[in-house]
Each structure stands twice: as structure tokens, then as C-alpha cells.
Computed example of a mutant assay.
Amino acid sequence: MVLVTGATGLVGSHLVKQLASQGQRVRALYRSVIPEGFPQHIEWVKGDILDIVSLEEAMAGVQDVYHCAAIVSFNPKRKRQLLQTNISGTANVVNACLDAGIRKLLFVSSVAALGRIREDEMINETMNWSEKTSNSLYGKSKYLAEMEVWRGIGEGLDAVIVNPVIILGAGDWENGSSGIFKSAYDEFPWYTEGVSGFVDVKDVVRAMRQLMESEISAERFILSAENLTYRTVFSEAAKQFNKKPPYKKVTPLIAAIVWRLEAIKGKLTGKSPLLTKETAHTAQAKVYFDNSKLQQALPQFTYTPIKTSIERICGELTKMYNL
């Protein structure tokens, strides 16, 4: 039996479906409503990683735990919720794993925990978040969440950490990284010269499963297929949707103006801003990720070319939203 937290999110939902399709017994944690479109034999359990009792009950009879639950937000108003869920929630998961005698924990972290604002050097797994190398509270929360996992390892828990870059997949495109595709479909005109790593959600899930099934423990791995400009990714998605690609370049000055206007708009409307100071800075940065450690650990593992992933995802989203 395998437990998956965050089973309704982009990574968690793809993981649950892949595990179930291959005959794995899966127990999936949900908070409010059981989602549709999943295989029938998944055991859904209502719970919350902030509720220690529900976590303990969910881990009864479980051997392995995939901890995917987290809040991804760059909205300053969600600071308390972000820190509580990502840090305290992970601490609860680690403690429950230790108490339940779980065989192995796989924690989905983020490259934000590595301090990704490093334009002079390629980022690898030896790096960590710091005030100088990260501009987001989210990055700090994931770094501190990793510290809870390392604490668990120090107390005897077998665990492995993955640090995905920007994950591309078909999901709710009103939230999260799937919003890239909605922006392309809506012919969002702006682009930056920023560079980041990108990876297919299906590759993230495959890497997670192979690491879980391996003897590897007390290690972290960057999951990244390719380092590309945001413009390249947006343009390829627009092409697949037969839409106009972005054509207006965002300068640092324009970005600074826009995030300030969005902050004012957010205060007036109560809605989360589309752009924040942190995301504006990140979109301008040219950041490159070293993916060689995973390739050395799993020599047979290969990444899907991002162009191929975008073509598939756009097709899935076209069906999902009847475009």
C-alpha cells in the first residue's frame, strides 16, 4: 500500500493515476471533495497534513509515502498559510512516517529550495536557499521543509528528495504551472528573455517511482529536462494551439511597473495579483540547472523533449476544456 499526499494536485494526480494503472494499491489523501476522472480502485481518505490524527490513520498499513502536498504561492497575503502547510505539514508527515515505521518517504520539494537566483553558475544539488540566492518566501518554505525531511533521515527514516524545475502538464490552468498554456491560448503578448528549466509531469512521476523503488536514500535530485527561455516555451504552446506567439518584450522597467500596479489592483479587488515582485524578478533571470546527478543515479532514465511534451499537453488541454 502506498500513500500519496497532495493527490489532487498536478504531480499527485498524475502519480496516483500512473500507480493505479500499474496495479499498485494506492491510498490518496484529499481535503474536501473526491475528484473525478480517477481509477475506481483508489482508496480515497479525507485528511489534512496539518491534522496529525488523520495522518496517522491514513498511514495505517502503508509501506511507502509520496509527500506531494504543498502550497505554491508568491502572494504575500498567504504567508502564514504557506509556512504552516509547507513546513509544519511536512514535519507532521515525517513524524507520522517515523511512528508508523514507513519503509521509505519521497518528498517533492522544488528547485526554489536550492536558491535559484544564481545567474553566474549552473545550479546543482549541493546548493541551498539563502537570502542572497532566493527572492521568494516559497523557496524558503521548501528549504525549511527539506530540513524536516533531513531531520527524519537523521532519526532513521529512509527518504529521498526531488527538486523539480517548472513542471509542464495538463491540469487546472487557472492555477499553477499549467497557467502557461492558458496564457499561450489567450495570446498573452508579453515575453521575457529569462531562462529556466522545464520538465514534463510524466517524467517527474517516472523519476519519483524509480527513486522510490531503488535503494537510494538521503539524497536529493534536480528533475529538469531542458533549460529554455520562457519565450521558447510560450511560443511553442501558442503554435500548438494555432495562436499568435508572444511578441512584446518585457523590460525590467516594464516588469517593475506592472507588479506594482498588480499589487494595487490586488488590494482593491482582494484577488491574488497576476504578477508579484518575486515572479517579475524570476521571469527576468537566466537560470540554468544541472540534471546530471539523476542521470548518473538512474542511467536508464531519459527525459521527454519539451517540444514533444508541449504538443501532447496542448492536445490534452484541448480535450479537457473543449477548445
Rank of each mutant, 00 (worst) to 15 (best):
K271Y: 01
H281M: 10
L228S: 08
E215H: 09
K239S: 12
L261F: 06
Q295H: 11
Y230R: 11
L223H: 01
V258K: 14
A225T: 02
T304G: 01
Y247L: 10
K239F: 14
M320N: 07
T304P: 02
L298H: 04
I257C: 11
H281F: 09
Q295M: 14
I216W: 07
T251A: 11
S235H: 04
K265I: 00
E226G: 06
A283H: 00
L211Q: 01
A237F: 09
K271G: 02
A263W: 03
A263Q: 04
A285F: 07
Y303G: 12
L274P: 02
Y321L: 04
N227V: 09
P305C: 08
K286M: 13
E219W: 10
R220H: 06
A263E: 08
K286H: 07
T304M: 07
Q300Y: 09
Y230W: 15
T232S: 11
Y288K: 11
W259D: 08
I222K: 05
A280S: 13
F289N: 03
K271T: 01
A256E: 03
E262P: 00
P273R: 03
S224Y: 03
K307P: 00
I306P: 00
L261R: 08
Q300N: 10
S214H: 07
K239V: 09
R260C: 12
P245R: 06
C314I: 15
A263F: 01
A237T: 11
T318E: 15
A255N: 02
K243Y: 13
T232P: 00
H281A: 13
E311S: 14
E236W: 05
R220Q: 12
S217A: 08
E215T: 13
G266Q: 00
L294E: 00
A297K: 10
R312A: 14
T251P: 10
K248P: 05
K243C: 15
L268E: 01
A237R: 10
K267L: 07
L274W: 06
P305A: 03
L275H: 01
T269V: 12
E219Q: 14
T229H: 10
Y247D: 06
T318M: 13
N242P: 02
T279H: 06
G270L: 08
Y230P: 07
P273I: 05
E316S: 13
A238E: 03
T308K: 12
K249T: 13
K286Q: 14
S235T: 13
E236Q: 09
G266R: 01
Q240G: 01
L253I: 11
P252K: 07
